[in-house]
Design a protein around this nucleic acid. Structure first.
Lengths: 137, 137
DNA sequence: AAGATTATGTTATAAAATTACATGAATTAG
DNA sequence: CTAATTCATGTAATTTTATAACATAATCTT
């Protein structure tokens, strides 16, 4: 499994801006939403956001949600070492639950081994309704 | 878990074209690759492909790979009833292994239950190197 | 100080997906 | 049978997401 790069002592200016916006956000944000949010702070082009996001993902501080083309700040106190993370994405309210489950990770590793597949990155995303929205009906 | 729609007696013209192209393909294809492949057969606009793909996915005959923005024909003899499917995507040769693992599905269901999350669709994608490419180094 | 690496800024472009609108074919309700 | 509804199609325009190419500045290395 891929390991995150070691955390840098401090983030660069653009990385700080993007990380800040994601941390404040209630839910996931797309790169272009981030750009809109950060125009006043000086960001002007998509690449500035994408480059910051690339690094933050590399550091393990941000996760990319493939089924949403969007990004969330990692909510774990220690972002490192969570090789297999699953996300439960509520299609009603947009909240994202971050789930680390050792048993799930083990099963996935076992499957990979069975197929002699060398996993670099795993994506596990559940789309549906969170408890609250499911109740609300 | 979401169930596929019942299979229609026969596919429409565009659905047939798209399904044919995907079935012949060695690996996954993007919507625009499909469009290029099918221009000679009369397809002219992205929407024609996307609409066919939507239906084929709904029927469970085609799977969408979120991490690739691409589509693969289901390789299972009976496409129905495979609620939880994982894909192992080789980043070297592009092949996609389709994996159905009951134990993995059970674990995922257990997690969803634990969070009272009503799953509509699950995405499980492993990116890495297949046995052959891993060997080749 | 020279060379390498890393971050930045900017423009343009590519790739992926959808909106809006119009038409034709098939199904079915009256 | 025919009107009404549904479903598939066709086309143009646009939106959203992501990258390529090029230039400059800052930092680190030796």
């Amino acid at each position: 499994m891929a390991h995150p790069s070691p955390l840098p002592l401090e983030l660069t200016k653009n990385q700080t801006l993007v990380m800040g916006a994601l941390s404040k956000s209630r839910g996931p944000l797309s790169a272009y939403s981030l750009l809109d949010l950060l125009r006043d702070e000086g960001l002007r082009a998509p690449l500035q956001v994408y480059r910051a996001l690339d690094k933050l993902v590399e550091f393990g501080m941000v996760h990319r949600l493939e089924s949403l083309n969007a990004f969330v700040a990692c909510r774990h106190p220690d972002c490192e070492g969570h090789a297999s993370i699953a996300f439960a994405i509520c299609e009603a309210c947009g909240t994202v639950e971050e789930i680390t489950d050792p048993s799930l990770a083990r099963r996935l590793n076992a499957i990979a081994k069975e197929f002699s597949f060398a996993v670099k990155k795993s994506t596990i995303e559940l789309r549906g309704l969170c408890a609250a929205c499911h109740e609300a009906g």
